[in-house]
Design a protein around this nucleic acid. Structure first.
Lengths: 193, 193
DNA sequence: CGACACATGTAACACGTTACATGATTTG
DNA sequence: CAAATCATGTAACGTGTTACATGTGTCG
């Protein structure tokens, strides 16, 4: 649903053809999620089928611009007016992974948490670097997208720490022992940082 | 990729058939993301095709259990050992929406932000209620999944506030005026809460 | 008996990615 | 000229959702 409405929003600024739409989309969102061109065309075809856009005659240079229709404008207005609910977001793979790790025999949950934490911390640094060492400091849309990722990564690190803390007191369900009984907690908990 | 590995993890606990797998998956993740049964069967078929699980003869009651193979176990181990990177997560529809709202003519960005903020705050309250008024306080996997959602929702609210702050100083690109010049900021900013 | 939960599957569709085919234009 | 970029499309596949078809077992 994301791209569908994204293209509609871009077309609200004026007529554009596929290649332009991809460039505009990536520019608006800071090239964080590259948009593949094939999907632009298939999405445009679906939008036209649904009456939300209208394709215009191909130009002499072989470009086929599209324009938004009234129905498309209505759809777009609705999109902007409707908040995105938790329910219609994709499953969070990380929390599923952690939840399942807890009940899967032979998995060192703390290792999983720590590996993820390192990766997320690295991502955090890279994002911070991008934020300050960039050539487009004036670009508010881009900065907000970047900030969203920063906020999310920070929350993830906090959650991972929270998981680690919770784990200390966790008595695994019947199965093989984990190799780190709770008597050890103070030692390596303090040593790791 | 999420469910594929999720099913593998569940099968690592022992043989199970489709219906059981769905129940176990939903129980592990707190029924937050209901898993549709059709997908369980198609995913199992793909896993079998790829040699990660093996289907066992149908029982007298018409149940077809599956067991994980060595290849499946290897795949699962790799999954747990590999952190989930920012790159392979789905696009964040909310930040795309906000980014595009900024450059779409006729959109009241502040209204979009505030509507979303209200919705997210409501979700936050509901999650908090669930956390404390639940009949499964002992269930660590479920609690961690819930906490992940709480952390994310909190981060989202902070980000939305951050957006609103950034917006105050934002001078929209050439186009029609927004109707709330910066001279007004102190008034409605204070009145809203 | 009839309704409901259990259980397996299939079909159709939306969305996303990768890869390929095909040309026009620009530029070193 | 050759290579890169611009530009449009299609095919194949993975993943996810909804809906339907089908049958068994249980319980009021």
């Amino acid at each position: 649903m994301s791209i569908r409405h994204g293209l509609l929003a871009l077309l609200e600024r004026g007529q554009m053809y596929g290649y332009q739409l991809r460039a505009a989309f990536e520019e608006s969102t800071g090239s964080t999620w590259p948009l593949n061109i094939g999907q632009v065309y298939t999405t445009l075809a679906r939008l036209e089928r649904d009456g939300l856009v209208r394709s215009l005659p191909e130009s002499e240079a072989g470009q086929r611009p599209y324009e938004i229709t009234d129905a498309g404008r209505a759809d777009l207005t609705l999109w902007f007016a409707t908040p995105i609910s938790r329910a219609d977001r994709p499953r969070d793979e990380l929390s599923i992974k952690l939840a399942l790790a807890l009940t899967t025999p032979g998995v060192d949950v703390r290792a999983v948490v720590q590996t993820q934490r390192s990766a997320t911390m690295r991502a955090l640094q890279e994002l911070t670097r991008l934020k300050y060492a960039s050539d487009k400091p004036e670009d508010l849309p881009w900065r907000l997208v970047l900030d969203a990722m920063l906020f999310q990564a920070e929350a993830e690190v906090r959650w991972l720490d929270h998981c680690e803390t919770s784990l200390v007191r966790y008595r695994p369900a019947p199965g093989r022992p984990t190799g780190h009984p709770e008597a050890v907690d103070r030692t390596d908990e303090a040593a790791r940082r």
